[in-house]
Write a protein that binds this DNA or RNA. Structure first.
Length: 322
DNA sequence: CATCGATGTTGAG
DNA sequence: TCAACCTCGATGG
């Protein structure tokens, strides 16, 4: 379910709590027993997120590649870093816009009683569920992989991809992906995205979802980015003004940064505070157009349209994005 | 309690 | 283009 921002946040948890530690790897479900055996007992040396893919490196040179797909989720138990620290961790990675908001009160309150904390990371947000009495906890449901250090446990369920790769296979995998602005916010990355889009006859709404064009964007960010740009989703990439394409890249970089810092898909930062509070109060929906079929556009009141394209649902305002 | 659908990708046809 | 993958919250009866 996650788009790029949550995968980066999950990678941060591994960087903070697993890298440098010996990891016991198993497959409680059994389906990945052979793969788990290949990394069991090794020290994790690196955790990298590229778009929606995550790569974990071990000291025997093997990598675990995980893609959560639409159902996948990681459950962390034990020592897990709560929101506030995640934001500062992201800040250390070169983020700007770091919010001073502290939301990690759970951490202190729970660690003060010395009990392991249980945090679950799923979809776009991080939930602290409380404490567990036993560490590690019994696996719940079909756990494809369990990674365990002396103090932190990570359970993977329902992934689209979970496999052991050689270094060259990791490289090949990454080479298939377009630029990820959190990994590379250089002019070169923007140029690469821009050149690709300007070359294609494909509608921009499909290009934004194409992971080889730009990594990490999913259906929510796609719809929201197009609305924020007031862009008709059907315009072929090659028909767009170059500055429009560059603006899309910059806006994606901005939304991704905010998403990693907050753990939420904030796409309405352009709203006035009153309008934003109103939107948040009236419905749990914090989006401009995503999942708002038939509801009035927040800008012009025209009913939001939904159409299927490329097997996915596309939401847009036919007036503002004419 | 049963059914639906989802922030995704792959591979068959 | 579409089914399959695989999980679970939301929805409806």
């Amino acid at each position: 379910m996650p788009e790029g921002h949550s995968v980066h946040r999950i990678a941060r948890q591994f960087a903070l709590h697993f890298v440098g530690h010996e990891v016991a790897a198993s497959s409680p479900q059994g389906r990945f027993a052979a793969g788990a055996a290949r990394i069991d007992g090794h020290v994790m040396t690196q955790a990298v997120a590229v778009g929606k893919q995550m790569f974990l490196e071990f000291d025997n040179g093997l990598w675990l590649k995980v893609h959560l797909g639409i159902y996948g989720a990681w459950d962390f138990a034990g020592d897990v870093t709560a929101d506030a620290t995640m934001a500062s961790a992201a800040g250390r990675m070169g983020q700007t816009n770091q919010k001073g908001t502290v939301v990690g009160a759970h951490e202190d309150s729970l660690s003060s009683i010395g009990a392991p904390r249980r945090t679950r990371l799923r979809m776009a947000e991080q939930e602290v569920e409380g404490t567990v009495d036993v560490f590690p906890p019994d696996p719940v449901g079909a756990v494809r992989v369990r990674l365990l250090t002396e103090s932190t446990c990570a359970d993977l369920r329902g992934p689209t991809a979970c496999e052991i790769l050689l270094p060259e296979e990791v490289q090949a995998s990454i080479d298939k992906l377009g630029p990820d602005p959190l990994l590379d916010d250089s002019k070169a990355a923007e140029d690469r995205f821009t050149a690709t889009v300007l070359k294609k006859p494909t509608p921009i709404c499909l290009l934004l979802m194409d992971q080889s064009v730009v990594a990490g964007i999913g259906n929510v960010y796609r719809a929201e980015l197009l609305f924020r740009a007031r862009l008709n989703p059907h315009i072929p990439g090659r028909d767009l003004p170059e500055k429009t394409v560059r603006a899309l890249w910059k806006d994606w970089a901005k939304l991704l940064r905010i998403g990693v810092e907050t753990g939420q898909m904030m796409t309405m930062d352009g709203l006035s505070k009153e309008a934003y509070d109103g939107a948040m109060a009236s419905r749990a929906d914090r989006h401009w157009v995503y999942h708002r079929t038939g509801e009035p556009c927040r800008v012009c009141g025209t009913p939001i349209v939904m159409e299927e394209i490329g097997g996915r649902k596309l939401y847009w305002c036919p007036k503002d994005q004419a």
